[in-house]
């Protein structure tokens, strides 16, 4: 991608006291900008993030209405109605992001394509263990990847799977509002497979927690990579690229 070399620059003076990231190897002074995430992928990431938060908030109300609308006539407030509308609308957005992401598995660059979802090579398993040791504070530096490291690949693919199950179970539940309709008939295999519509409801409910547990870990590890290793990953999901040391060798740089 675009690799504009920058002139060598002196490192800025550092303040005394405690700062994170001080043990990063001295940069060579040359940087290049690598473009990783295409615009559709970034847009889908943030749309899905918003949709998932909206789905969780409204979904928990639908699962157990955590406040009661008192007093007025039933015709007046429409709380559950709006909650369900927002839930279904956000679900539609999430399905749309999944469709675009699915297309981008074919159309995207090598960091976005189908093969990048699965850490199946022996090299990947070695580096996943190194990454785990880094998180256990047993390794000074994680394996250097431009795109997703094997542990990210595994967890993001897992989240895709969870989201897929959420979508399928969600459609099975939604389809019941129009018995005999297209969605109802198209997803009739889901309760048959799960052992009844209540079990579908249960799976849909439990997997919400998996997505919620993922959020703090995802944000923390992204911030950690940015502060400790100065990888610029947070910027990369906004601008699409990040600055890297021009001399640094990356494991996935030569991958097809």
């Amino acid at each position: 991608m675009s690799a504009t070399p920058l002139p060598p620059q002196p490192a800025p003076p550092r303040p005394r006291g405690f700062t994170l990231g001080h043990r990063i190897p001295p940069p060579s002074g040359e940087y290049r900008w690598v473009y990783l995430w295409d615009a559709p992928l970034r847009a889908m990431h943030w749309l899905a993030a918003i949709a998932i938060v909206a789905l969780a908030v409204t979904g928990f109300y639908i699962g157990k209405p955590y406040f009661i609308t008192g007093g007025a006539e039933s015709a007046d407030p429409f709380v559950m109605g709006w909650m369900r509308f927002i839930h279904f609308a956000s679900a539609a957005v999430l399905v749309m992001t999944a469709i675009v992401r699915g297309y981008w598995l074919l159309a995207g660059n090598k960091f976005e394509r189908f093969a990048a979802l699965f850490p199946v090579r022996p090299r990947d398993w070695v580096n996943m263990w190194k990454q785990a040791k880094f998180y256990m504070l047993m390794e000074r530096h994680p394996p250097a990847y431009l795109g997703h490291n094997p542990m990210q690949q595994l967890s993001y693919t897992g989240i895709y799977l969870v989201a897929a199950v959420m979508v399928v179970t969600g459609f099975a539940l939604y389809g019941q509002s129009n018995p005999g309709g297209l969605i109802n008939r198209g997803f009739a295999w889901v309760p048959a497979l799960a052992g009844g519509i209540q079990m579908v409801r249960f799976i849909h409910h439990v997997l919400t927690w998996v997505l919620i547990i993922f959020i703090p870990m995802h944000i923390y590890l992204a911030m950690r990579a940015d502060t400790l290793e100065r990888t610029g990953v947070i910027s990369s999901i906004i601008t699409g690229g990040r600055f890297v040391d021009a001399k640094e060798k990356f494991i996935d740089a030569e991958d097809a």
Partner: peptide
């Protein structure tokens, strides 16, 4: 904590006027 320990062990003296440990 790990970072602070590392710093104590590997970087004996840091001159505040000379930049930081990242300075070549």
């Amino acid at each position: 904590v790990h970072q602070m320990r590392e710093r104590k062990r590997s970087l004996p003296v840091v001159d505040p006027t000379s930049g930081g440990p990242g300075t070549p």
